[in-house]
Design a protein around this nucleic acid. Structure first.
Length: 490
RNA sequence: CGGGGCGUAGCGCAGUCCGGUUAGCGUGUCUGCUUUGGGAGCAGAAGGUCGCAGGUUCGAAUCCUGCCGCCCCGACCA
């Protein structure tokens, strides 16, 4: 990115941190572990959010909003759920402050202690299922397909911008169904929606799969996930969709009258993606010059930089550029005309690259003379001079090219860094280099734990498309029916 | 909660071991002139409770004691 800073290959983590801050996506805040999402970063998140929201609506869901605070007692209703989240909850115990005796400070008023503590939601299953109890009586009330856009808090020990923050923005879908099959269908449908979004809009290839018992969501019977590879070969879980069975219905006593007149517990799913997707987007495509954004999520598609010496020249350029800008906009592109006279062109080029703007146009005196414009693409740095009348078509075409190229490039990288092995020694070597490993596993949590302790690698998922193949567990040599995906993960 | 490190200008740092001019460097900011097809150059200016409190000393950013804050590694994790 900017001169003299960490390169991607030198120190991937540091490169990422610097990039997020320098590209104006986010900053650390005064509150430990929390993040300020800056306007540019938020604009990208809004693009993601709007597209996902459309996809949810297209699959029959509606939005609603549930409270931030969850009574502590709700939490303990579902045993494995509380166990999974208890260690990272923010808890509200009081509702009032008062002046300290010496009047110099504000202190918690110990008289204002809550009878029951409130948990700041780390996820909303409990408060939502407590509500669903009132909403669902009959099979006619089902399915209930609701999504909420919200913030949640998980008091993590160690945080990283976008990838793991104490508070993060996300959406969580919570659905209720009359049958197990329907709920299962919904679970799979939504993981496909996520996969679709991440591949087609973010340009990041995913592996769809199911989690092992160790990695499963607290309270779920089955967790589906999409796993992505970052440029250091580590895995990032980009989204999850959970089949919750009747666990939450039983915990919150949500029964419905069936078509046959009997009473049954409803079947549930939940699914979510978060601002972590921003981290995935940055880590998957960016380079040492900065961010590389897929056109479908870029807040600005094209930046036009004028080259001039005197202000008269600028007005001549403006006459050419403004109609061009208008025409690009008529083709659905967002265009920025960077006519700042406070910085030099070279500075602008570097800045726009840092921010990942897909296409840059340069128009100067030379172009005025020749009726041309220079067009450069961010992903490959290729630049060419085109006749002015071809500028719009070229740019529109470039948007598709860049979008495709980013996906293809990421896919090629993932393929080049995905390995099959049956040797535990080689398994460890590959992990140290970075990459995904397809290997046999005996199906036990004990083996998975031992491998994790030994190598820091976890089973990211059992890929949905993993073919049956009998083999021997990489660690224990016990029989295995298919290979599973191992990697170190964020 | 265990192990390590750091706190000096908006930001990044040197100076601390071995106390001694007016506390310095880079960058950023401001002013002026020259520049403008890849992160400009020169000249000038502004900017500091050296984390806080106490102690030792003729004298403390530097030594001693206590406190506060932050970062990194581990446990946790979308």
């Amino acid at each position: 990115m900017s001169k003299g800073v960490t390169s991607r290959k030198e120190n991937y983590s540091q490169w990422y941190n610097e990039l997020v801050v320098k590209a104006d996506l986010a900053d650390n805040s005064a509150v430990r572990g929390c993040m300020v999402i800056k306007p540019y970063g938020y604009a990208i998140w809004e693009k993601m959010r709007d597209r996902l929201d459309r996809m949810f609506k297209d699959t029959g869901h509606v939005n609603a909003y549930f409270p931030l605070f969850i009574p502590k007692s709700f939490f303990s209703r579902e045993a494995s759920h509380v166990e999974g989240f208890a260690k990272e909850c923010a808890v509200v115990t009081h509702y009032r402050l008062k002046n300290s005796p010496d009047g110099k400070d504000i202190v918690v008023d110990s008289d204002a202690k809550l009878e029951e503590e409130l948990i700041v939601r780390p996820t909303s299953e409990t408060i939502i299922w407590n509500t669903y109890k009132d909403w669902i009586q009959s099979y006619r009330d089902l399915p209930l397909l609701i999504n909420q856009w919200a913030n949640v808090v998980r008091w993590e020990m160690r945080t990283r911008l976008f990838l793991r923050t104490a508070e993060f923005l996300w959406q969580e879908g919570h659905t209720a169904h009359a049958t197990q099959a329907e709920a299962m269908e919904e679970t799979v449908r939504m993981i496909h929606v996520y996969a679709d979004f991440v591949e087609k809009y973010m340009g990041v290839p995913v592996i769809e799969g199911v989690k092992t018992a160790n990695e499963r969501f607290a309270g779920a019977l089955e967790t589906y996930c999409i796993e992505t590879m970052m440029q250091d070969g580590k895995a990032l879980q980009a989204g999850t969709s959970h089949f919750l069975g009747q666990n939450f219905a039983k915990a919150f006593d949500v029964k419905f009258a069936t078509r046959e007149g009997t009473l049954d517990y409803v079947w549930a799913t939940s699914w979510g993606v978060s601002t972590r997707l921003m981290g995935a987007l940055v880590m998957a495509h960016s380079d040492d010059k900065g961010l590389v954004l897929p056109p479908k999520l870029a807040p600005i598609h094209v930046v036009i930089v004028p080259i001039y010496q005197k202000t008269e020249q600028l007005s001549a350029l403006r006459e050419k550029i403004l109609p061009l800008k208008k025409e690009l906009e008529a083709n659905g592109l967002t265009v920025k005309f960077d006519d700042r006279d406070t910085v030099k062109p070279g500075f602008k080029f570097a800045e726009h690259e840092l921010k990942g703007i897909p296409v840059r146009m340069v128009v100067g005196p030379r172009d005025l003379e020749n009726g041309t414009v220079e067009i450069a693409r961010r992903d490959t740095f290729e630049k060419n001079v085109y006749p002015l009348h071809e500028a719009v078509n070229t740019t529109v075409r470039l948007m598709d090219d860049i979008q495709d190229n980013l996906y293809r490039r990421a896919l090629a990288f993932r393929n080049a860094n995905t390995f099959q092995t049956d040797s535990y020694d080689e398994f460890k070597e590959i992990l140290d280099r970075g990459g995904f490993i397809m290997a046999h596993w005996d199906g036990t949590s004990e083996t998975e734990d031992r491998i994790k302790e030994d190598t820091k690698a976890t089973i990211r998922c059992i890929p949905l498309d993993a073919p049956e193949e009998s083999g021997k567990c990489i660690l224990t040599g016990k029989p295995s029916a298919r290979r599973v995906l191992f990697a170190r993960a964020y």
